[in-house]
Design a binder for these strands. Structure first.
Lengths: 205, 205
DNA sequence: ACAGGCAAACCTACTAGTAGGTAGGGTCAA
DNA sequence: TTGACCCTACCTACTAGTAGGTTTGCCTGT
């Protein structure tokens, strides 16, 4: 169904990998559903309607819903780690790094979605163990990255010398996840950035 | 099934309201399910198993799941408003008031539950409209109350004179909801209170 | 160069199980 | 005798997942 731009000009080009793989489409649409409705509240029927293949065909790519969920988080995690690394490369200073980090959360909301792990956390207890484990790993990744950024900020004297970087990292992550949650429920993200800036002001030297 | 302590000593006492009404039990157990699994992921079957009446009998008390959900939030809201009023009565100062407020969130986690509206917010989009509306109202109640406490804190000179109280209120709510979410996913609430204190330190005079 | 094999990808048609909800009847206290 | 409360038995809609067949295109042997 229209995935290939025209019916054929066969011969010349490499034919194998399509521009967007069905698997990739499934992951993308499943992510949208997960980040708007939650894991329990989205179904293979929803997903099949969005992607344009039959429900049963999803099972060809992901044997179970759990496997889809796990693949989804794993794919997201890879992208996210790359994005975090890029921030470190682009921005030398702690405060601009934190603002770029915060932009992930504000950007999600502007796209009409919850942050992935924020969406998953609330129903963590009802999730398959393999997914719970990945959500935990994801948060620990955030906390480790933030801790590093904050530590650099202290040595660079942009942040308070007496800062407990682990606790401060937990605070930054919390305020952004929480602000996302509140903004999502209120359908109003105006308060997100100010809340973040207010919280970060407690870290400054 | 044992709801009434003994078979009867009829006559003397007012017999009408049993010590724990089935309706009350349903609300209580539904709240636990909602705050641990989420709205979509708990069922009338789960609830009936916990309360000890048949699934169909739940419909005698709550015609629909939505009606149960609404009643649950409304009941919670009444209790919560009373608790907030009591803080204002007991504690004259802003910072102790905020700490008592934060204790609602840490207390929830220690009881093994998410805060009610934190649990609901993530799947807000998938909720019936009547419940979405009440979640919004609940957050606005929080924000209004916090705003008042912070404003008093400013006049009492415990908090910074230049504080934007509305933004600061959003920050306090966010950090607590977010810290709950992270603690819930990590199954570790040790970082909650430090994160809160760190955030609040940005408000102090 | 063409036949045959093969596997990826998708389909229709189905399953068992569970979701929320309904119909109607029994019990018992006021 | 009414009505609150709870029951058994049932309904329809939908869930994730399965069985088995069709299409498509690449790879290989002759």
């Amino acid at each position: 169904m229209d995935l290939k731009p025209a019916t054929e000009s066969s011969g010349a080009a490499r034919p194998e990998t399509p521009l967007v793989s069905t698997r990739g489409l499934l992951l993308k649409e499943a992510e949208v559903l997960l980040r708007t409705r939650g894991y329990a509240a989205f179904s293979y029927a929803d997903l099949s309607a969005r992607v344009g293949i039959r429900k049963a065909s999803i099972h060809h790519h992901f044997r179970t819903k759990e496997e889809l969920g796990v693949a989804l988080i794993d794919a997201y995690l890879v992208e996210f780690e790359a994005a975090l690394a890029e921030i470190l490369k682009d921005e030398p200073q702690a405060l601009p790094r934190l603002r770029r980090y915060a932009a992930f959360f504000t950007g999600s909301l502007q796209d009409g979605m919850m942050p992935l792990c924020g969406a998953l956390s609330a129903e963590a207890f009802a999730l398959p163990a393999s997914m719970q484990q990945r959500v935990r790993h994801f948060f620990e990744l955030h906390l480790d990255w933030l801790e590093g950024v904050l530590r650099d900020g202290v040595t660079e004297r942009a942040l308070r010398a007496d800062l407990d970087v682990r606790r401060a990292a937990a605070m930054v992550l919390s305020v952004l996840e929480g602000a996302s949650l509140v903004a999502w429920a209120l359908k109003d993200d105006a308060a997100m950035e100010p809340a973040f800036e207010q919280a970060v002001s407690s870290l400054k030297a």
